[in-house]
Each structure stands twice: as structure tokens, then as C-alpha cells.
Simulated assay, not measured.
Amino acid sequence: MDLQEVREKAREVLKGICRVCVVCDGRNCPTGVPGIGGAGTGEGFRRNIASLARWKLNLRVLHPRKIQDTTFELFGHKLSFPILGGAIAGAKVNFGGRLDEREIARALVLGAKAAGTVALTGDGPDPEVFAAGLAAIREADGWGIPVIKPRSNKEIIKRIREAEKTGALAVAIDVDAAGLFNMTRVGQVVEPKTAEDIIEIARSTSLPLILKGIMTVADAKVALASGAVGIVVSNHGGRALDHTLGTADVLPGIAAAVKGRLMVLVDGGIRSGVDVLKMLALGADAVLVGRPLFIAACGGGPQGVKMQLEALAQELTVAMRLTGCGALQDISSEVICNVM
């Protein structure tokens, strides 16, 4: 099995839901939300791709950095590279029930672990979504990070207790899901969070707390002041609010404000190792990859996810070598330029 075969299998499984396009930029998505596309017009999804594409790389090959080291430390755990699996969930709602929730979670978590990195798992209106993620993390001996919707604090803390029992590396809240209709239409509260809410949640657990869905310096500063140890610069893959900026648009300012005091992760439109390098150069410590790993999971299970992650890592290694970088700390704004 190679990645082309994985993609062909995924195209069969996802017919009518995702075309598994050669260029995954949201322009030809047959479905929005529910589905795998962007919200509304899909502009937020497309903006993620466009904002990253306007950055170009400075080729540099006369340098002494002959060996590239991509290893990365996340909350005291050594990863093979700074590429994590984003949370993909909601099989019944988004994928027409063609895929089993536990099968998807297991593929993402175990595939990431086999590749030497870690994946996030999801939450949703169906209790099976969160349970599937926890089951996969438990099978992986805690090697995963569950994401919880911005429910009431009582409900969040209840789920954190379940996550703690799996030995999870950390726990996250996707605060950008505060307006998701698939939750509210079934009577499950999701809401914006105050600084006081985050303080209460952070103090309720010894697990590192990550807030996913930070798109402004103001929110990043609230996260820092409230006890979070990491943030994900994210617009929910363009699936929460139409017409948002792309993550590469806002990442530099956010990183400048809090990097070194918060772990800065980013997602949105990352399709290659070159894209990973760009995001690191823009200020991220590591990235999350969503749709490419979802396709790999659909077409190849854990092995497909492992292969896709390793391919991204290999592309990152080559990009580092050709921009004069020997280790992640060598990657700076000097390796990129904005020509748009």
C-alpha cells in the first residue's frame, strides 16, 4: 500500500462527501457543514490556503547544516517531528454514517503514535464521539489529547475527569466551537468562555490545558493569563464562522505576543512539509494537520495515517535542508518572504 492507493480507497469511501482533490483548497468540496467543507460560502476554509500560499521560501544551500533534526518536545514528551494530528470526528453527522467513529479515532491516534507523534480526538453532541476518542487514547496507553467542546464548566470538568483516567498527555477545549449549530440544535450548551471560566477549568486538573481556536492577540493574552499552557491558532478549519482571516494571517502577531510563555500550535490549510516549515517560520512551535490525515485514515487506517505523517515529515526535512536549517530552532522569519 502506498499513499496513492490510500487516496484512491478514500475517494471510494467518501464519494459524494469529499472528492479527495489533488489540491485540497475547498473550491470543489461537494459538502459544507455538515460535511467536510467550510461554513457558509467556504471563504474561511479557502482563506487558510490563500494566506499560507502568499508566503514563499528563501532557498539557501551554501551552509554547514548537513543533518536535519526534526525532534520536538511537547509538555515533556519527545515527538519525532512538530506535526500533530488534528481532531476529526462526527462520523454520523459529517460523513453520513459511512465510517465508524471508533475506527476513525483509532486510526488517527494509533497511526500518529506509530509515526512518533500524537493526535487530538474530538467531542460532539453524540456521546459516542468523545467516548471513541478516549477509547483510542486508552488503547494507545495515554498517547493522545482529547478535545472538549466549550460546554458548561461543569460538563467540561466532568469530561476532563474521564480524560485523566486514560493517562492523556493533555486536554484541550476548542473554544471556537462556541456557536456550532450541531450542538445547540440538540439542546447541548456551547458558549464563549470568560477568563474566570478558564481559570476554574485550569485549576481543576493537573493536565496541561490547551485552548484551540485563538485568532486574536487579545484572546491569546486571556489564555495566557487564565492558566492555559498552550493555544492552537485556529478558525476551526473555516467551519465555525464564514469570512474569517486565515491562520497564517494572524499567527505572527499572536506568536510575537505570547511565544515562550505559551506553547503556540496552529492549524488550517497545512497540506505539505513546506507548509509546516512556513508555519514554524511564522512563529508556531508545532502544527496540527486535519483533512490530509482524515483522508489517510479513511483510505488506510492507522497505517495510512502513519504513512501520511511520515511523508509530511520527510518533506519538512528536505525543506529545512534547502533553507539552511539544521534544527527546529534554526527556523525563523528569515527563511520566508511575502511577495503578495
Rank of each mutant, 00 (worst) to 15 (best):
D2S: 12
D2E: 11
L3G: 05
V6Q: 03
A10D: 04
A10E: 07
L14Q: 02
C18A: 14
R19W: 00
V20S: 11
V22A: 08
V22H: 04
C24P: 04
R27Y: 03
T31R: 10
T31Y: 02
P34I: 05
G37P: 03
G42C: 08
G42M: 07
G42Y: 03
G44T: 15
F45Y: 15
A50C: 07
A50I: 02
L52H: 01
L57I: 01
N58L: 06
L59M: 06
V61W: 00
R65V: 05
R65G: 02
K66S: 12
L74I: 14
L74S: 01
F75S: 01
H77F: 10
L79G: 09
S80W: 00
L84K: 02
G86L: 13
A87Q: 06
K92F: 02
V93E: 09
N94A: 09
N94F: 12
G96D: 04
L108I: 09
L108F: 10
A112T: 05
K113L: 13
K113T: 10
A114I: 01
T117M: 08
V118P: 02
P127K: 07
V129K: 06
F130Y: 15
F130H: 06
A132T: 11
G133N: 14
L134D: 05
L134H: 08
A135N: 09
A135W: 13
A136W: 00
I137A: 06
R138K: 15
R138Q: 15
D141P: 01
D141K: 15
I148R: 02
P150G: 14
S152V: 11
K154V: 09
K158I: 06
R161F: 06
E164P: 11
K165M: 12
G167E: 05
L169E: 02
V175I: 15
D176V: 11
A177G: 09
A178V: 02
F181R: 00
N182V: 00
R185C: 12
V186L: 10
Q188T: 03
P192V: 01
A195L: 13
E196I: 00
D197V: 07
I199C: 04
T205S: 14
T205N: 10
T205L: 10
S206E: 12
L207S: 14
L209E: 10
L211I: 12
L211Q: 12
V222Y: 07
V222P: 05
L224G: 05
L224S: 02
L224M: 08
A225F: 01
G227L: 07
A228S: 12
G230P: 09
G230C: 05
R239D: 06
L241H: 00
T247C: 12
A248T: 03
I254E: 06
A256C: 04
A256F: 04
V258E: 06
R261M: 02
L262Y: 04
V264H: 09
L265N: 02
L265G: 08
D267L: 10
G268F: 09
G268M: 11
S272P: 04
G273M: 10
V276Q: 12
L277T: 00
K278G: 07
K278L: 13
K278E: 08
L280N: 04
G283H: 03
A284D: 09
A286S: 07
P292I: 13
A296K: 08
K306C: 13
L316I: 12
M320W: 03
M320T: 06
G324A: 14
A327K: 13
L328C: 07
D330G: 01
I331F: 04
E334Y: 05
C337F: 13
N338Q: 15
